[in-house]
Design a protein around this nucleic acid. Sequence first.
DNA 1: TTAGGGTTAG
Length: 545
Amino acid sequence: MSPRGVFLHNLRIGSLGRAGQLDAARQLFDRMPTRDTVSWNAILTAHWQNSDLEGSKRLFDSMPQRNTVSWNSIIAGCLENARPDEALDYFAKMPLRNVASWNAIVSGLVKYGRFEEAERLFVAMPARNVVSYTAMVDGLARKGEVDRARDLFDRMPKKNAVSWAAMISGCVENGRYEEARYLFDRMPEKNLAAITAMITGYCKEGNVEQARSIFNGIRHKDLICWNAMMAGYVHNGHGEEALKLYIQMQNTGMKPDHATLIAVVTACSALGLLQGGKRTHAFAIKTKLLLNVSLCNALITMYSKCGCIGDSQFIFQNIQNRDLVSWNAIIAACSQHGDYDNVLSLFSEMEEKGMIPNEITFLSILSACGHVAKVEECLNWFNLMMSKYRIHPRAEHYACLVDMLCRAGHLEKACKYIREMPYEAETSAWGAVLAACRMNSHVKLGELVAKKLILSDSRTSGAYVMLSNIYAAAGMWREVVKVRGLMKQNGAKKQPGYSWIQIADKVHLFSVGDASHPDIDKILSELERIGFHMKMFSHYANLSL
DNA sequence: TTAGGGTTAG
C-alpha cells in the first residue's frame, strides 16, 4: 500500500468513527495491508468514541508502536467514558507528555469535579498555553471560586474567545450576572458560546424577554443556543413557549439531542402533557438518546407528575448507570405518591449501592413523612440528616418540618422551629402555620403570623386570604370584611387558580366557578362520586374555604 | 491533539 493510500485510509477511518460507524471503520482498518501508527490511533479513537473503551484498551495493548498521540487518545477515551482514575493511570505511565496530555488530564479532572487534583497538576505543568489557563479558569469557577478564576483570567498571558466565554459562563453559573454583562460588553470578538452564556444568565435572572431578544438576534443559531433558550423558558414556567420553540427548531431542520429532549420532557411534566411526554419518550428510544441518564431522570419526574408512577419505576429500573439525581427523582416520585414504604426501601438500597444522599434526598424523605403524617419519623430523619450525614438543613427542610408539625396540630412546636431556624422565615413555612391555624381555629396565633407575613410582603394575596379564612372559620365576619378591605387598599391581587388535564391531545382548562365546559354536568357528578369516596376513606374534605 | 455555551432531582 502506498503511503498516500495509507494516509487516505487513516482519514476515512477517523471520519467514520466520528460519524458513529464503528463497524465500517473497523472493516476498513482490518483490510489495510499496511498500517502506520496513525492508522492504529485512528481506530483506537473510533472505538472509544463509540462507547467501546475496552476495545480501545485492547488495541492500545496490541499496538506495535505507540506515540504521544496514542497515549493522549486512550486518556481522552477514559475521560470521555467516565473512567478518570484509569486516565490518571495511563497519564502516570506515559513515557513522554506534551502540553495536550497535561491539558487533557487537567480539564478531565475539572469535568469530574476533582478540582484540587486538577489544580495540583496545573501548578506542576512544565509549560502552559491558552488552553491550560482556560481549563483552570473554568475549573476554579465551577468550584465556586469566581474571584480566583477572575484573577487568573486577568493574569493570563494570552486570551482568546474561548477563554472569555469560559469566564463569562463561570460568572453566570455563580449568579454574578452583573459581572458577566460587564465582561461580555468588553469581549473583543463575541462568539456564540459567550452569547449563549448570556442567554442563560438572563433566564436565570428571570428576564426571559431580554434573553429572547438576544436569541432572536443570532443569525446562525446552533443546537446549543436553541437548547439554552428552551431550558430558560421551562425554568421560568413558560412551558408552552418552550414547546413552541421546539417546533420552530425542528422546522429549521435542526436535529434535537438529549439536552433538547430534557427541556421538552420537563415542559411536558410542568404542563401535565402526558401524551407529549410519551411521544418524546418514544422518540428517545428510536434515536438511542434514552441512553442518557439525565433524560431518563427527567422522564421519571414527568411520568410521576402525570400520575404514572409505574412508568417512573420502569424507567428507573432500566437505567444502566444511575446517578444521584436518578435516585432522588424516584424517591421524590414515591414521596409525592404517598408511598412511604417504598421511599424507605429505596433509601436503604441507594446506601447499599454506595450512593451518598444529599440535601434534596432528605427533602423528599421529609415531605414523604408529611404526606403520611409520620411526626416522630420526620423529626428523626431531620436529626439524622444533621448528625450522620452532616447536612445543614436549608429553609426548605424547615418548611417541610413545620408543615408536618402544623398538619399534625403541633402549632407551638412548629413556631419553635421557625424561631430557631437560622434563616429569615420563608413565606412557605409561615404559610403552613397559617393553614393549620384555620384547621384548628387558632385565631390569635393566626393573626400574629398573618401580620408578620403581610408586613414582609404586602402585595401577595396568600396571607390575607388565609387570615380571612381563619376569621370566617371562627364566624368573625366583621374581621373578614376588614381584611378584604386591607387587601384591596394594599393592592394585593388574588391570582385565579387554574387546573387542567389533557385527554387525547386536547387540554381542558378549569377555573373557580367555571361552568363553560360542554360536559360540566358529567364532570360535577364524577367529582361528587370521588368526594363521597374520599369521605368513605376518611379523607375529610374541609369545605369551609 | 488538549480549552468554551445547553442537560436532571425538591
